[in-house]
Design a protein around this nucleic acid. Structure first.
Lengths: 256, 256
DNA sequence: TTACATTTGTTCGTATGTATA
DNA sequence: TTATACATACGAACAAATGTA
């Protein structure tokens, strides 16, 4: 005989609930927590309720709760600190910056880049942007380009496209004056949390524009990174084509 | 008051043992299991002892054992199958092939490559090989080159270097006739398990040799991948420089 | 087909250790 | 010092998958 309720779901016996919902309780808890994150009930940098409160809220045991949290921690959505609490991950420099900026000097040295905004324009999604962002060709998008420098030397060009729908009030000035990382800015300014990216890499040759911005000869070999960035529920919110000069740097698959 | 022994370690009370060894019991169990794997007590594709036997062997509770196994599973060293047992991971095609072969057609289609061995020679480690493999310059190495094709078209060149010391009996014929993946061959033929790689990516231009092997014009942009492959205990056993033609394919960071 | 033994997976709960404010 | 929070370790009970008799 199962329990009579599933606590937060309250849908009948343990067994019936299992058949009716996800079958696995900790997965249901995880989903509920994911919903609390996606809906903004728990905000970046804030502590979520303590384990004791969460087991009351969800009506599960400590082990089940911890298993749900374990997975959210593994996915970098939450960060646990013994003695302090469990926190919603942010994109502040200290936290996750090098998870998304994988450029390293060839001797392994890592450094924060300086960013210069060189283009900002409204436009209509082309085919590749529409495919990448799940839009229709012609939908309104914002395109902007950053030049990233390391040790004062331009090393990477990021050509970024976002749907206007998700960033309706975004202005060039805001972008230029943002105090922190771009993904942190998405987070603070628009409530959009980038939690995952998919990236594909190619080699390409510098065109005149690249050559100009990156101070290399046209025809140089560049590493091209095609990135789609995802928010909660696999929602695509940014498409980015980066070009990296690998004369002195490289793209690393190792996390620091 | 702690327990009197730590089972397989038997080094005193729980607390003392903690201070003396790793401090965390499940980490000790994990280390012991890692040792059993590294020493070949548990061999690839075989089942390790059941949880019940392991908790007897290590003198820990089921929860502690499972936490140790959880981490080894997360690191892809073990694979659990409910109802069957827990198995040592292998490099057979079905298992982990696409963890190490990250080349995908631009439309996302994945395919096993065909491999052609085009060079095999003994030599002395140069600077970069020595650094990558933790050898001294001049140490004996084997170098061999594979051309990988997808849909009958050459797409990637792998220039591979391994220390002779780790592969003393390796011959060109063996390499040419291996029935399975290269890492599976290392595993079966030399007891060497590749469990992890570090990769760095650059863009480069095709030289005459590349152009010849890959049937592209010299000067084409190619994606270069510098890979160091590790066995247990972070031992470096292979250094590989790959060049990929990204005209129709790309290097993906997504796992299938 | 059925029944059973074996193995891992999930859920429960308790006690204690460790880090933090 | 104290209270709070997460971390580790224990183990029981049952569920689900698998292979075999």
């Amino acid at each position: 005989m199962g329990r009579v309720t599933r606590g937060f779901l309250a849908v009948g016996t343990r067994f019936d609930a299992g058949a009716a919902i996800g079958g696995v309780l900790y997965k249901d808890v995880k989903r509920a927590m994911l919903a609390a994150l996606a809906e903004g009930e728990w905000k970046p940098a804030e502590a979520i309720p303590s384990e004791r409160k969460l087991i009351e809220r969800f009506g599960v045991s400590i082990g089940t709760l911890r298993k749900a949290i374990d997975e959210l921690v593994a996915e970098n959505l939450l960060i646990r600190h013994q003695g302090r609490g469990t926190f919603v991950a942010t994109h502040r420099m200290e936290d996750h910056f090098f998870r998304f900026f994988r450029v390293v000097r060839q001797d392994g040295y890592r450094e924060y880049p300086t960013v210069r905004l060189v283009r900002f324009r409204r436009g209509k999604a082309d085919k590749s942007e529409a495919v990448a962002l799940g839009l229709s060709v012609g939908d309104a998008v914002l395109r902007f380009t950053n030049v990233l420098s390391l040790e004062k030397t331009p090393v990477m060009i990021d050509a970024i496209t976002v749907p206007v729908e998700r960033f309706p009030t975004l202005t060039e000035v805001q972008l230029r004056e943002r105090p922190n990382t771009l993904y942190n800015f998405y987070q603070d300014g628009f409530g959009i949390n980038i939690i995952r990216t998919e990236e594909r890499l190619r080699a390409t040759l510098a065109n005149d524009d690249d050559a100009d911005l990156m101070e290399v000869p046209a025809g140089s070999a560049l590493l091209q990174v095609l990135r789609t960035a995802y928010s909660y529920h696999d929602e695509r919110v940014e498409y980015r084509v980066s070009k990296l000069n690998t004369a002195h740097h490289e793209f690393t698959l190792s996390q620091p």
